[in-house]
């Protein structure tokens, strides 16, 4: 007799398979919390990056501190209210944020600097830049929200 692998009937195997399908840890509220968090971090990053030429050095330092504070608060809030981290949520979050930074550094900041040579940045310009920077994180947020439990 094979004591390491005791016999298991087809019915027992089906029962075990069924038992793995009945309980779900995933919760729509957790997906929503992570999606909102990713969107908030993306928008904060976008606004922070885009206001570079709109305000003076000292005010920008304050804005930077506030942005970092908002990001930390959002991350802590998401962790506090969530009981699970949805499948793929972390990967989407970091991919979105990294892409937002890449867009900011490689495209939006040079564009805003170019615009600033002709005159002071305007709010429509700043908002446009912020939205472009935030888009990758907003897409990541949508992917998290639409992910299956």
């Amino acid at each position: 007799m094979d004591t390491d692998h005791p016999p298991i009937t087809a019915q027992q195997a089906r029962d075990q398979l069924d038992s793995t399908r009945t309980r779900s840890l995933g919760a729509p509220g957790d997906r929503r919390a992570h999606a909102i968090g990713a969107a908030a971090v993306g928008l904060t990053t976008g606004l922070h990056m885009a206001t570079r030429n709109l305000v003076g050095e000292s005010l920008y330092a304050v804005l930077s501190a506030v942005s970092i504070g908002v990001v930390i608060a959002v991350v802590l809030r998401v962790e506090r209210v969530s009981r699970t981290v949805p499948r793929g949520a972390r990967r989407w979050f970091w991919t979105g944020l990294a892409t937002s930074f890449a867009v900011a550094l490689g495209f939006v900041t040079p564009w805003l600097n170019l615009q600033a040579q002709d005159g002071p940045s305007t709010w429509p310009t700043v908002v446009s830049g912020a939205v472009v920077v935030a888009v990758p994180s907003l897409l990541a947020a949508a992917a998290i929200a639409r992910s299956r439990p």
Binding site: Q16, R21, R23, S24, L25, R83, V85, P86, G88, A89
Partner: peptide, 21 residues
Amino acid sequence: LSLVAALAQVDEAEFAHVRDT
């Protein structure tokens, strides 16, 4: 089996939530 099957649905889950589930 229930534990690993449940954890497979998420990246991470809180202990108490897993216990209740």
